[in-house]
């Protein structure tokens, strides 16, 4: 359980990057936080595991306040964080060693580190690369290692801070597939910070951030119905929604609430057959 109460944050240099945000995220949720570049979404991410501390308000993880110095390690163990640049979060020169980095810091006994590393690598499908050098891997593979590094700490919450932004479409799909599986099978709460609307489709809840404040917090279905509002804050709707809207305005077909290509084509077929 992650909860933000009236959280504001400003960097020394300027105005508030996060403004009076209140938010509750329950166990096992799958959430997307979307916003344009500079909307404050990455700052928000860093507030979730105490990398940044709120200028005012409180952030609590399972009741632990991130501003409590004594609990900070416990909080970071609970809230795993994967960042944007795959290169800048791998610490050591061998994949296995890197995945072990978190548990080593936590002082986990050696035997258990070994089992944790093995199962974490398996969970992201990278067990074959255990002895590889990280710099020889693709971007998507590096991000999978970064996720494994978090999993080895056995977190309850996984935050992906634009973890797919620097990947190619294949790498992006791999990562989304993996976190979805972790959410479904292991019940890990996933908070995906992203600017790709397509990635938000499968989430239970989409939070739209603009100018440091929450402007929408709803199901993807409801959020994507507000296409004009999204576009006005530098965002977009998924391609299926865009096409759906266009077909509706031109009076060609009404595809209802279709958000994915499958839903869209099924609805289209139905509506064409009706005629």
């Amino acid at each position: 359980m992650l909860s933000l109460k009236n959280v504001s944050f400003s960097y020394e240099s300027g105005s508030d990057a996060v403004k009076n945000v209140s938010l509750e995220i329950g166990d096992g949720e799958f959430i997307a936080i979307v916003g344009h570049n500079g909307s404050g979404k990455s700052t928000l991410a860093k507030l979730l595991n105490g990398l940044l501390l709120p200028t005012s308000g409180t952030v609590t993880v399972n009741g632990m306040d991130t501003s409590d110095d004594d609990r900070i390690l416990d909080i970071r163990r609970h809230v795993g964080m994967v960042f944007q640049n795959p290169d800048n979060q791998i610490v050591t020169t061998v994949v296995r060693e890197d995945v072990a980095f978190g548990p080593e810091n936590l002082g986990i006994p050696t035997d258990e580190i070994v089992t944790r590393v093995d199962s974490a690598l398996k969970a992201v499908g990278m067990e074959k690369y255990a002895e590889s050098a990280p710099h020889m891997l693709s971007g998507g593979q590096k991000q999978r290692i970064a996720i494994a590094g978090m999993l080895a700490m056995e977190p309850e919450i996984l935050v992906l801070d634009e973890a797919t932004a620097m990947l190619d479409p294949i790498g992006r799909k791999e990562i989304i597939g993996i976190v979805r599986k972790l959410n479904e099978e292991k019940g890990i709460t996933v908070i995906m910070i992203t600017q790709y609307m397509e990635e938000a489709i499968g989430c239970e809840r989409v939070i739209v951030i603009n100018d440091g404040s929450i402007v929408m917090d709803d199901t993807p279905l409801a959020v994507f119905k507000r296409g004009d509002e999204l576009r006005s804050i530098g965002l977009d709707v998924p391609a299926a929604v865009e096409l759906r809207e266009m077909l509706k305005t031109r009076g060609i077909a009404d595809c209802g609430d279709a958000m994915t290509i499958e839903e869209l084509t099924d609805k289209l077929c139905l509506s064409l057959l009706k005629n």
Binding site: L73, N85, Q89, V91, E97, N105, T110
Partner: peptide, 24 residues
Amino acid sequence: RAEELALAMESRCYHGGEGRTKLK
């Protein structure tokens, strides 16, 4: 890079050598 790496290491509970165990 150094700044981002520091954040990533902190996120993985790095707090110096004290109380660290080893994989090997």
